[in-house]
Design a protein around this nucleic acid. Structure first.
Length: 762
DNA sequence: GAGCACTGC
C-alpha cells in the first residue's frame, strides 16, 4: 500500500482509526493501533485524557498479551469457548475485542454480552463505557428488567441479563440485530444461560453470520466445547484460555470429621484471630438464623479472649451477610476492620459470616482467610409432589474452589476446610447441579415453546432434565391450556409466555377480566411476585402480628395482600406508614414496579383493567379467578384437627401460622408449599368446591380422580349441583356466564375500550 | 404456631 506505516501508532488526523480493518479479520496490530489513536474510532471524538491512563492499566491484564491469539481464533471460528479466572479481564476486554473485529456499528448491529445478575450487567457496562471513552447508554449500554439503557441505532455493545436476552429471543427468534453473542459466567449454569446456550447453538446453525462466544471459569470448559461442536462431532469448539491473576491460597483440611460444623467454624475463626497474621476472615454458613447465632457466639467468645489477654488479642467485629438484609446493612461488609485498641496493640480484624451470596454475587476485598464447612442450602425440586424445597447439602468441588479463591483476591491467603481431604476428593461432586436439574420447569418449558422448540422432550439440552420434571411441566401447561394435547403452544400460551410471571399467575391474570376483577388480580400477582412484605423482627414479633391483624381480610391471604397494597397506595407510598405497620417499603415499591410492567403487557394484548363496585361480590370474583390459575394447588380439610391433604398428590399439610383465615375452611387454594419443621401451605384463600368443578373441569374430572375422601366430597357436590339444576332451585352461582351479569362492571376511566369486543358483548 | 440459599423476567 505504501500509505500506511504500520509502525506509527496514530493515523493522520481525520483518518478513521479503524481504516484497513476488514470485518472479522482484525489483527492485533490493527486493533492496538486503533486503541492508541488520538481519535475515538467509534464516535470520532478526540479521547479524553483519562482514556490513555485506563488503556495503560488494561494493557497489564493477561488477556491483552493474548490478543493476537484470540483474534485469530475468533476470525477462524463461528463458536469459541473462553475460560479465564476472576481477574483475567475477560468480562470487560473480550467484548471490546469482539467489537473491534465485528465493527457492529458499521452495520447497525450489536454485540451482546450476558450476565446472570443485574448489578453485574450495569456495573460492567459502566466500566466498559469508560474504558472505550463513550457515554453509557449510547454506544455502550445495558438492558435489565425495568431498565433499558440503550439508544437504538447508536448502541453497538450491550450488556444484559441472560433472561433479558432470552425474552428478546422469544419475540425475535433470529436475534437479527446481534452480530455476536457472548454468554458470560456460563459455568454458573443458570436456567436462562442453559436455555440460551441450547437455543443459540441451534440458531448458529441457521444463521452462519452469527458468532457465539461462551465464557466460563476453567472447570467445565470441555463440556461446553463438546456440546458446541457444530462443525462436526469430532470437532469440539476451540478453547481460548486466559491466564488468571489471583494470589495462591493454601488449603487446610481437618484430620477428623467434625461432628458439629458450627462449633468447629467458630473455633476455627477464633484460632485464626489468635494465631494468624492480619487479614479479614470470611466464614460460609447456610442461612440467616445460623449466621445471626454464629455472629453472637463469635462476638461473645472474642470479647472474652480479648479480656483475658488484651496485650496480644486485637478487637474483632463480626458482620452477618445474607440477601434479605437491607442494602444498608449489607454495605457494612465493606467497612474497614476495627483499629487496634492501643497505638502499638494488635490490629483489629473483621469477620464476615455469609451465605453463598459471598461466593459469586458479592466480592469483599481484604479477605485473607476463608473458613468453609462445605455446606450450603440448595433448592431441590420434587416432581412427585410438584414442589421445591430447600435442603442443606454438601457443596461441589467447584464451589469449594470458588470459596477458597475468595481468600486470594488481595494477597496470598489461607482456606480452612472443615472436612477431610479424603472427603473432598471422593465425596464431593465435581460441579454444582445446574439449575435446570433442580427446579420446576413450567416456565422454562413455556419459554422454550415460545422460542419455537417443537419437541421439548428430545430437545438438545446441555444437561437434560429428569423426564418426570418435564412431564410435570407439560402436564401443568396442558391443564392451563397453554399447550394443547400434542404439546403445541396455544395462542393463550403464547400470550402467557409474554408475562414475566409463573404460568399459573399469568393464566389467572389473563382470564381475570371475565370475572370483572383484573384490576385486583393484577395487584395480587404483583404482590405474589415480590419478596414478602411482612417485616417480623425478632424482638417485635407481637407488635408486627398486631399490625398485620389490622390489615387482614379473613376470607383469604390473597385478599389481604390486595388490601395491603391498596392501603400502601392510599397512604401515598409513605415509608413511615410502612415502618409503623411493620411492612417492607422496598418490597411494596417493587410490587408497584412489577404491577406497572404487567399492566403494560396487558395493554399490548388489550386485556382490560376492570373492577366491581360491590366489595363482597368483588372478593368472591377474585377467589373464582384464583381457581382458574391455581386449581392444581388445592387442599381439602381432613379430620378435625385442622389438617389438610393436597388434592390428588395427597400430601399432609397444615396451614402456615402466618395464615390469616379466621377458621379452617373445607377447601383452600394456596400459593406456596414449604417444608420447614413440617409441611405447610402458605398464602391461603378459601374456595368453594363447585368452582373447582366448574373452572377446572379437566383437572377435576372425577372419572380419573384417585379414590379417597376428596373424591367423595367432590362427588357429593356434583350430585347436589345436578339435583339443583334439575329441580330449578339452583342459585346460578355456578354458571360461568352468570357472574358476568350479576356484577356491574366499573371500568377505569381511561380504559373504555374493547371489553365488549373481547367477550362478545358479555 | 413459625421463618427462605441465590438469581432472573
Amino acid at each position: 500500500m505504501g500509505f500506511d506505516n504500520p509502525y506509527t501508532n496514530a493515523p493522520p488526523i481525520g483518518r478513521n482509526p479503524l481504516h484497513g480493518i476488514l470485518p472479522r479479520k482484525a489483527t492485533a496490530e490493527q486493533v492496538i493501533r486503533a486503541m492508541e489513536s488520538d481519535v475515538n474510532p467509534f464516535n470520532k471524538q478526540p479521547h479524553k485524557p483519562q482514556y490513555k491512563r485506563l488503556l495503560e492499566r488494561r494493557k497489564e491484564l493477561p488477556v491483552f498479551g493474548q490478543m493476537s491469539e484470540f483474534l485469530k481464533m475468533f476470525t477462524q471460528n463461528q463458536i469459541v469457548v473462553v475460560v479465564g479466572e476472576t481477574g483475567s479481564g475477560k468480562t470487560t476486554q473480550i467484548p471490546q475485542l469482539v467489537c473491534y473485529s465485528d465493527l457492529p456499528h458499521t452495520k447497525g448491529q450489536i454485540v451482546a454480552c450476558t450476565q446472570p445478575r443485574r448489578v453485574a450487567a450495569m456495573s460492567v457496562a459502566e466500566r466498559v463505557a469508560n474504558e472505550m471513552d463513550v457515554s453509557l447508554g449510547k454506544e455502550v449500554g445495558y438492558s435489565i428488567r425495568f431498565e433499558d439503557m440503550n439508544e437504538p441505532g447508536a448502541t453497538f455493545l450491550k450488556y444484559m441479563t441472560d433472561h433479558t436476552l432470552l425474552r428478546e429471543a422469544m419475540n425475535d427468534p433470529d436475534l437479527k440485530q446481534y452480530s455476536t453473542i457472548i454468554l458470560d459466567e456460563a459455568h454458573e449454569r443458570t436456567l436462562a444461560t442453559d436455555l440460551l446456550m441450547a437455543f443459540l447453538k441451534d440458531l448458529a446453525q441457521r444463521r452462519s453470520d452469527l458468532k457465539l462466544v461462551v465464557m466460563s471459569a476453567t472447570l467445565d470448559a470441555h463440556k461446553f466445547q463438546k456440546y458446541l461442536s457444530i462443525a462436526g462431532p469430532s470437532k469440539p469448539a476451540p478453547l481460548f484460555k486466559i491466564h488468571g491473576r489471583t494470589h495462591p491460597v493454601e488449603v487446610f483440611y481437618t484430620q477428623e470429621p467434625e461432628p458439629d460444623y458450627i462449633e468447629a467454624a467458630i473455633r476455627t475463626v477464633l484460632m485464626i484471630h489468635r494465631a494468624e497474621g492480619p487479614g479479614d476472615i470470611l466464614l460460609f454458613l447456610t442461612g440467616e438464623e445460623e449466621i445471626e447465632d454464629a455472629c453472637r457466639r463469635i462476638k461473645f467468645e472474642a470479647d472474652d479472649l480479648a479480656n483475658q489477654d488484651p496485650q496480644s488479642i486485637g478487637p474483632l467485629v463480626c458482620i452477618p451477610l445474607y440477601s434479605s438484609l437491607p442494602p444498608q446493612q449489607q454495605q457494612r461488609i465493606f467497612d474497614p476492620a476495627p483499629p487496634s485498641r492501643a497505638p502499638s496493640g494488635p490490629p483489629g480484624r473483621k469477620v464476615v459470616v455469609s451465605t453463598n451470596i459471598a461466593e459469586t454475587s458479592l466480592t469483599i476485598d481484604g479477605i485473607v482467610y476463608v473458613v468453609d464447612p462445605g455446606l450450603s442450602q440448595v433448592k431441590v425440586y420434587n416432581p412427585r409432589i410438584r414442589f421445591e424445597s430447600l435442603l442443606v447439602s454438601p457443596i461441589s468441588k467447584a464451589s469449594a474452589q470458588q470459596r477458597a479463591g475468595r481468600a486470594g483476591r488481595t494477597r496470598p491467603g489461607k482456606c480452612f476446610r472443615l472436612y477431610m481431604q479424603k472427603d473432598f476428593e471422593t465425596e464431593l461432586e465435581e460441579q454444582t447441579h445446574p439449575e435446570i436439574l433442580r427446579t420446576n420447569l413450567a416456565n422454562a418449558v413455556l419459554e422454550l415453546a415460545k422460542l419455537g422448540v417443537k419437541d421439548l422432550i428430545h430437545f438438545d439440552y446441555v444437561d437434560a432434565p429428569a423426564p418426570e420434571s418435564l412431564m410435570r411441566a407439560l402436564e401443568l401447561l396442558n391443564y392451563l391450556a397453554a399447550l394443547d394435547d400434542e404439546g403445541n403452544l396455544t395462542p393463550l400460551g403464547a400470550m402467557m409466555a409474554d408475562f414475566p410471571l409463573d404460568s399459573q399467575m399469568a393464566k389467572m391474570l389473563i382470564v381475570s377480566p371475565e370475572f370483572n376483577c383484573s384490576d385486583e388480580i393484577l395487584t395480587i400477582v404483583a404482590m405474589l411476585s415480590v419478596p414478602s412484605v411482612w417485616r417480623r423482627l425478632p424482638n417485635q414479633q407481637k407488635e408486627a402480628d398486631v399490625a398485620k391483624a389490622l390489615l387482614t381480610i379473613p376470607d383469604g391471604d390473597h385478599l389481604t395482600l390486595l388490601n395491603v397494597y391498596n392501603s400502601y397506595i392510599s397512604n401515598k407510598h409513605d415509608r413511615n406508614w410502612c415502618w409503623n405497620n411493620y411492612l417492607g417499603a422496598r418490597a411494596l415499591q417493587e410490587a408497584e414496579n412489577v404491577r406497572a410492567q404487567l399492566q403494560r403487557t396487558m395493554e399490548r394484548y388489550d386485556i382490560e383493567l376492570v373492577t366491581t363496585q360491590d366489595e363482597r361480590k368483588l372478593w368472591q370474583s377474585i377467589r373464582k379467578a384464583l381457581v382458574c390459575g391455581f386449581f392444581m394447588q388445592v387442599a381439602h380439610k381432613e379430620g378435625e384437627k385442622g389438617g389438610y391433604l393436597t388434592v390428588k398428590d395427597n400430601q399432609v399439610v397444615s396451614l402456615h401460622p402466618s395464615c390469616g383465615l379466621d377458621s379452617s375452611p373445607e377447601w383452600v387454594i394456596f400459593n406456596e408449599f414449604i417444608l420447614t419443621t413440617k409441611p405447610y401451605i402458605r398464602t391461603v384463600t378459601e374456595v368453594r368446591p363447585e368452582w373447582l368443578l366448574e373452572f377446572a373441569p379437566n383437572y377435576f374430572d372425577l372419572s380419573t380422580f384417585p379414590a379417597g375422601e376428596t373424591k367423595r366430597a367432590l362427588q357429593s357436590v356434583l350430585k347436589k349441583r345436578t339435583l339443583k339444576a334439575v329441580d330449578g332451585t339452583g342459585t346460578g352461582s355456578v354458571s360461568t356466564r352468570s357472574n358476568k351479569h350479576d356484577a356491574e362492571p366499573k371500568k377505569k376511566p381511561k380504559k373504555q375500550r374493547s371489553r365488549a369486543q373481547r367477550s362478545g358483548g358479555g
